[in-house]
Amino acid sequence: MRHRITPKEYVKRNWLLVGIISCIFLAGLYPRLGSKEGPLHTEYSVKYGAVSLIFLISGLTLKTDSILHTFRQYKLHLFIQLFTFIFIPLVTQVFIKFLAIFGVNAWILRGLITVSCMPPPVSSAVILTRTAKGNETAAIFNSVLGSFMGILLTPILLLFNLGSTTIVPLLGTIIQLTTTVLIPLCLGQTLRNFTNFKEHKFPLNTIGQTALLFVIYTTFCDTFLVPETGLSALDVLFTVLSVLFMQISLMLISFFMSQYFTSDFRRSDIVAIVFCSTHKSLTLGIPILRIMFHGYSHLSQISLPLLVYHPTQIILGGLVVSQLKDWVYLERGKKPPV
């Protein structure tokens, strides 16, 4: 007889998803608390606190030999970066041609194109990959690589796809990536290899996921405080449905396309591919949009798809992470945890 999962077991198994839903609810109750102008000072507590903590934990838990092995997986890195910067913009161009038939707001369509040109984020994809028992090292490498490449490629892609571009703050972005990602990662590796930290039993995975939930909470606080966009309810509905369809399609395409490389990619690699190749950065995206379309009366319409895309990718990730974890366990010959 099949074991029936109790509510307690379901919450334990899917606690990240439950946490995401709780974050959305709490952010909706009092969004100013976790907003950029709020008392939590998220420009520091998130950027240099939670995100740095996530990568410090990654440095503490990753085996150095696995990092060296991941550097040699050039096919995996090539797949993710080509999917992110080439495949998604091309597919989006086709997608907006289809949406234009239904009379979707032209500025929303420009916003969807802008989203497709953005680089990956450096926190959510890594934590979701780790939670799903995917190739965390590959997720970190490609998130950081994609962010650096986005400094150069995103303006070029925007010029090619929209006919307009902007200069990304190069020095500021490099400093931010170095201080929030590379330094904590190297510090974690140093503590792991040159101290007896490995003998301590801290719940690092739980701490990392809690840090991600804090990032998610503050993201939704900012989302709920977005001023009126000047769009009709139908335009907003079209945006939400378009982004949802776009993300689900991209996740499925990346998942099944990578199946053709089963001789090269293990299931843990495919998990990293699904999250890293389809996620887009809000942190870099919003400043780019504000520089590109400064003074435009349609800035809010163009920004809406990215504002919808970011929380949607987190929610969808939370929905599939448990299934992907079971899938990875089966390849390893282990019984999926209840």
Rank of each mutant, 00 (worst) to 15 (best):
P184I: 13
V144H: 11
Y217C: 01
W107D: 12
S123Q: 15
R192A: 10
F98K: 01
T195A: 07
L128C: 04
D222I: 07
N105E: 01
I108M: 04
P121L: 09
I175N: 09
G111R: 02
V226F: 07
L191C: 08
L204S: 02
L170R: 14
I175D: 06
Q93C: 05
T173W: 09
L177Q: 09
S143T: 09
G163P: 06
F224R: 00
L212H: 02
T206K: 15
F197W: 15
V226L: 13
P155M: 02
I167T: 15
I127W: 01
T223I: 07
P119S: 15
L145G: 11
T166N: 12
A125P: 07
T178C: 14
L191F: 05
F202G: 04
G208V: 08
T190N: 12
P169W: 14
T178W: 14
G103E: 02
S143N: 13
Q93P: 05
V94C: 02
V226Q: 11
L177G: 04
Q176P: 03
P155F: 12
L157F: 09
T229N: 06
I175G: 10
G134E: 04
T190P: 08
L153Y: 08
H200C: 14
Q189I: 06
F98H: 03
T195Q: 04
P119E: 06
F160A: 12
T129C: 13
F214E: 12
I101M: 05
P203C: 05
I183H: 12
